[in-house]
Structure formats: C-alpha cells, structure tokens
C-alpha cells in the first residue's frame, strides 16, 4: 500500500507535503508532484496537510482519478528509487497523459 497524489495537484504543486514527508519520497514533476510508491512508508503525514486535498491512501483514490495511482508509479519508471527527492530536484518524467492535460486553474 502507498499514498497517491491525484488531479488536484496538477499545476498547483503546493509542496507542503514535501516538507512534511519524513522519508523525502515526494518527487517533483513538470506538472505535479508524485509519491515514490516503494519509498513511501504509509505514515499518512502528507495527506492531511495538502491544501488541495490531492493526496489519498491508495484504496481511497476516487474512481474518477483512479489512473493517478498508476501515474505515480509510472513517473519513476526511469528514475527508480533514488532514496530522497531533495537531491533529485525537478524531473520532466511526467507520464505522457499528464503532460497532455489541459492547464488547470486554481483559486
């Protein structure tokens, strides 16, 4: 099991979750943030702090955003498990369908 970041993060990337994550497993893509599923320890620290309510426990991802579970995994296809987002920085490995999303507006 793991936590998953979904659609509300796209083009927002608030990053509060990144500061909260005790194991530094939330990585930054071009359009959104992604949780490394193998590095996530399921501690749940990120979920309540996200102002956009974009983070869900894997089982609780709303049906409309079910594809994001896979997107979080796919983002790391090339990157693997670097063991810490801090030293990696922004990576342009967003899955193609995320890249193709229309720009998202936020309040």
């Amino acid at each position: 099991m793991t936590y998953v970041i979904a659609q509300p993060c796209v083009d927002l990337k608030d990053r509060t979750c990144v500061d909260e994550c005790p194991v530094d497993c939330i990585y930054e893509g071009e359009r959104m943030l992604y949780i490394q599923p193998d590095e996530c320890v399921d501690c749940g620290a990120c979920e309540p702090v996200c102002p956009a309510e974009a983070i869900f426990f894997e089982d609780d991802v709303p049906d409309e955003w079910a594809d994001y579970t896979q997107a979080n995994a796919d983002f790391f296809a090339k990157l693997g498990s670097p063991g810490g987002a801090g030293k990696v920085g922004k990576v342009a490995d967003d899955p193609q369908w995320i890249k193709d999303l229309p720009p998202q507006e936020h309040d």
Partner: peptide
C-alpha cells in the same frame, strides 16, 4: 491497521 501518528518515524522503520 497500523496506528501510529501520521509522519511517525516508526512507519519508516516498519517499512524497512
């Protein structure tokens, strides 16, 4: 069900 506080280091150790 794991019942530590969110963000607890215990999760990381458990996972490891």
């Amino acid at each position: 069900e794991v019942r530590w506080c969110p963000g607890c280091g215990d999760y990381a150790v458990l996972k490891a």
